[in-house]
């Protein structure tokens, strides 16, 4: 039979066990609640990012903004570079046109010079000068006058668009033509378009000079219909003509004379030896 003490111990153990079980159950509940709350927190964290992630996002935003700014700067630089290249292209295009024009002008000058010295035949030289004046300068009516050193008169040796007889002989130093022959300076009328033909007052008068010695003149009275004014290359051509045409004329005349003399001498020699 159990004593009262034994009954008391048994009751306390039972009570303790009950209490322990309740404690265990409570702990289990607490753990479950803890788990539930953790889950809830995670859910909430997913729905409402916490400040730590906000910081990360802000950093990324800042980096992106910096990147955008950097790209904007690059874009501006590229646009400026494109604009610069376009300006350079424009400059190159303009320069190309200038070089082309210069090239054409040089070709004209080269051809004129080449042709002038391609022959020693006097009539052919006059023909070449005529062609240059028509085809390179664009004159329609003009004359080539040569100075007769004995009479000091300027006489037409070749004409274009005008009969040779129409051109009067000019005295050295007299009138525009005579003055140009005397002082050796080019003459251009002020108003080319308003000019009307006058044999004593030409539109253009170019002295043919060997150094400072004038041997003749080119006088222009009318330009071709489409030729309204003179281009810079025309003045270059006039300068070239002034020198090269003069030497070509002088050389061909000398050559003709020497050929004639040679033929005369040869005739004498033949007479003496036969």
């Amino acid at each position: 039979m159990a004593t009262d003490d034994e009954k008391g111990v048994s009751y306390n153990a039972e009570e303790f066990l009950q209490l322990f079980k309740k404690g265990a159950e409570f702990t289990q509940d607490l753990l479950k609640e803890n788990e539930r709350l953790r889950f809830r927190i995670l859910q909430m964290e997913e729905s409402f990012p916490d400040s730590g992630e906000e910081t990360i996002v802000t950093d990324e935003n800042r980096k992106l903004v910096e990147r955008i700014e950097c790209l904007e700067r690059d874009k501006a630089e590229i646009l400026e570079r494109i604009a610069q290249i376009e300006r350079e292209n424009q400059d190159f295009a303009e320069r190309y046109v200038e070089v082309e024009s210069e090239n054409n002008n040089l070709a004209n000058l080269y051809i004129a010079s080449y042709q002038l010295h391609s022959t020693l035949d006097f009539p052919e030289v006059l023909q070449i000068i005529t062609e240059i004046i028509i085809n390179l300068i664009g004159a329609e009516e003009f004359a080539i006058l040569l100075l007769d050193e004995k009479t000091n008169e300027l006489n037409a040796m070749a004409t274009e668009g005008i009969a040779r007889e129409e051109i009067p002989s000019m005295q050295m130093g007299s009138g525009i033509i005579g003055s140009v022959a005397k002082n050796g300076e080019n003459f251009f009328v002020d108003d080319i378009e308003g000019y009307t033909r006058d044999f004593h007052n030409p539109m253009v008068c170019i002295p043919l000079k060997i150094k400072e010695h004038v041997i003749g003149l080119i006088v222009i009275y009318k330009l071709l219909v489409q030729k309204k004014t003179f281009a810079p290359v025309d003045y270059e051509l006039f300068t070239l003509l002034a020198g090269h045409a003069a030497t070509a004329i002088f050389s061909s005349k000398l050559y003709s004379e020497s050929e004639r003399k040679l033929s005369t001498i040869q005739g004498f020699i033949d007479l003496l030896t036969k």
Partner: peptide
């Protein structure tokens, strides 16, 4: 027929 013109055109 003009040698000057021929040369000028050929040159171009």
């Amino acid at each position: 027929d003009s040698p000057t013109m021929r040369q000028l055109i050929a040159f171009a």
